[in-house]
Design a binder for these strands. Structure first.
Lengths: 113, 113
DNA sequence: ATGATAGTTAGCTTTATGACTAAGCATCAT
DNA sequence: ATGATGCTTAGTCATAAAGCTAACTATCAT
């Protein structure tokens, strides 16, 4: 199960950078042009471009160009695999804890005998 | 809001590697020794060690040494910040969508007049 | 047609990652 | 006390990440 999920690696990697997360939260407000994203971060345009391409390859944003302006929008569904993975893990981890609980109960019972 | 959250960066970065995710799922089953984690991955011990230290610095696992054996256990609560961040983002994004909806409604109304 | 504007590409630098080998240290079994 | 076991440290290597500058292209306004 979950042998190797390149999609997840891309997503987590994209989210691991604070600049990229701040770009995402900015885009969550409203779509923005590349320069709009450059100004507040204090980063140069090419740097922002690189971040954007990482985000786009992860599927977290989509961009389109109109004239000389590129507009970036967020892609909310892109976070689904992350959420799903988290839910799966939680299920497994809680399952494990239940088993440990069961084991502890059994052990205590045996001791009590 | 969410200026720079080093904790999140550590977590996301730790989760971005498939080997580390597989170590986590393995540890979700039951605690394991370092060699137990080395065998199935086919990776050398020092490599596994490095992965473990990344996971530990992110707070995702805890380790303890008894004699010459180090045992690794998962730390389920460690995923909470990730889940929280996801929830926050979802809230913001949905907020944004509602606003867009409102805008669209207004525009349609104006057109209808 | 000129100049400003918006983005893009190319190339460079520094630091971090992920893997390895080889050698070291600390225990445990005999 | 010796050797095997289990982990650790040190050092190497190749590649990727994150930033920059400089130069280039494409569009829009005048």
């Amino acid at each position: 199960m979950t042998k190797h999920h390149p999609e997840l690696s891309l997503l987590f990697h994209a989210l691991a950078d604070p600049t990229r997360r701040s770009i995402l939260t900015r885009l969550a407000e409203t779509p923005a042009r590349v320069s709009d994203l450059s100004a507040p971060t204090g980063l140069r345009l090419p740097t922002v471009m690189r971040h954007l391409s990482v985000l786009e390859e992860a599927g977290l944003i989509a961009t389109s160009k109109d004239g000389r302006v590129r507009t970036c929008v967020i892609v909310p569904e892109a976070l689904e695999p992350v959420r799903t993975w988290l839910d799966e893990q939680r299920a497994i981890w809680e399952g494990r804890l239940s088993r440990l609980d069961a084991f502890a109960m059994k052990t205590m019972k045996e001791r009590a005998e």
